[in-house]
Design a protein around this nucleic acid. Sequence first.
DNA 1: ATGAAAGCGCTAACAG
DNA 2: CTGTTAGCGCTTTCAT
Lengths: 350, 350
Amino acid sequence: MPKRTDPGRRPTLADVAARAGVSAMTVSRVLAGNYPVAPPTRSKVLRAMRDLDYVVNAHARALAGAATRTVAVVLDDPTGPFFAFIARGVEQQAASEGRLCLLCTTHGDPEREAAVVELLREQRAEAVILVGGAQDTATYTERMTGFARALDRSGSRLVLCGRPSPGPGVPATVVEYDNEGGAYAMTSYLLANGHRTIAYVGREPGLSTTDERVAGFRRAHADHGAPLDESLIRPGAFSRGGGRVATEALWAERADVTAVFAATDMIAAGALQALRGRGVRVPEDVSVVGFDDIPLASDLTPALTTVHVPHEQLGREAVRLSLHRGPDLDDRVMLGTHIVVRDSAAPRRP
Amino acid sequence: MPKRTDPGRRPTLADVAARAGVSAMTVSRVLAGNYPVAPPTRSKVLRAMRDLDYVVNAHARALAGAATRTVAVVLDDPTGPFFAFIARGVEQQAASEGRLCLLCTTHGDPEREAAVVELLREQRAEAVILVGGAQDTATYTERMTGFARALDRSGSRLVLCGRPSPGPGVPATVVEYDNEGGAYAMTSYLLANGHRTIAYVGREPGLSTTDERVAGFRRAHADHGAPLDESLIRPGAFSRGGGRVATEALWAERADVTAVFAATDMIAAGALQALRGRGVRVPEDVSVVGFDDIPLASDLTPALTTVHVPHEQLGREAVRLSLHRGPDLDDRVMLGTHIVVRDSAAPRRP
DNA sequence: ATGAAAGCGCTAACAG
DNA sequence: CTGTTAGCGCTTTCAT
């Protein structure tokens, strides 16, 4: 039986060509639109495509040499407070560049992460965007270098978004934001408001963002000539509960603190809970500030003064940069952060 | 020059076969693992694959007839409060079924939605999951029927998740949740707590979920023999601002209301703002309840009593059902909802 | 248990 | 401006 009459078959380029009385190549050119085709021919082809409800086969196209026009985001968990914004940035930029967007999650499991990278190599994704903080250790650097090289060999590009760079010479794109600068600006703001006994709550040792934020906290103290009591840099988990616990512990020891710089907005939310529980008024008695500017920040009572991180732009830049990249092996950009003044911080009361 | 020595080329199945001294077919079988291969041969092949850093080409595979092993979610906006949870459910189930997940957004634009469906037809995605409420009009039904048929012709499956069914006989899978039952349960709860003047705030005419929720509200009144004052069903936008405005307007007219059933948690948040602004205490003076059970609900003060919608499970079911589906043309499931009692509702004060 | 041959549907590279 | 010829890398028959 001739193929043409096969009933359940999806129409192919050849079918369209036959129906329009032209060659397959002409149809291909009409599709791509990057080559001159005589208008009458063009309309005949378009007509045939419509008649047959023709849909190109993206896989055949990818196999024949065209780019896959697909980028991938790899997240910890799409319900995270800011991962969603990064995902939105990625998706938007991908869409505006005519790319489709693959979404994968790892739940923080390194094995799953490796498996996902492998899957994305199979897909020949143009870019693989790894999102979210990570332990900045030697192991991490090795892993990322491995991913970068492997993806490079597959004709794909690794993008580290909000993660530390594996160093120069590694074929990867890095999109960061200014943790140090944001912490510096916020600490300066508190110091300018007369605070001198500022606790930094929620240091998670080893986490890349932590070190940078603490560095900004330190530099601001130094630049303002304010002595920094190291015992005021408090450890704690990056969660609401962690913030509550750490703040409770802090108050048990030091009632002289007049401002709390929480490492994240979530921690700040926990700190507010703890302080409310103790009958401490914010910002009258104590100022509390956060970092990240997640939606929750403006919902808290009082609305949280915090450092804005351009999550969405981070996602957009990740796509943009990986798609239009120069001849360099590695490239990176750092996006700025800035403080957002709301109601949770006030000048120190005498 | 022989292909094999081409330096930048990605190794193919043939390369692996050559290196292992077997035919391409044998390598393919090792890869698929669904056919007996002699253990020694097998190891030789695996060895060669590792040596060459071989990665299958998903597109070649898809072209040669294998399934694409890809499902797609189409969202309004990934930063929406519950879209993220549905996306998580989809992604998790997809991963556990060995599928990759494409993420597309439409920002509520029907044209973009149609364009996205077309793109996904090109990708031969196994399932295309459309998420989120929609106006249940004749136009909607036609659109969805069109999508369903088009996807069906491309060997793909349309899944409507939390959206109305286009009716029987249309090749689509529908995964819904029980809006009517949830509203019934919540209204019953308020009635059982002695409330008799309950306002329903945030009716968006035409939106599919609205009608079902209002129906449950009505049925509960009827079943409890409580008269329902139609003027207490208040229109309003599905947003915090909408809730605030609608509640302000309500209070200006009716100070006798003792309970507010907000159509969504966001509306409830707005209602709480409005009531706080007026110095009305919740739940002492007025009870407020919501619908959806988004994370914000437990963060509000007081924590919101609301109807839980199983968003994540909705996403999981969408994938599961579309992948393991019987011979029927259309299929649907409805997931249950239940009330979550927190602090924003109390017995009516005498 | 393994291999050979024939495509899957498209586009790149050359003609004309 | 349009057509021809060759694959892209894999999996499906059908043989052996």
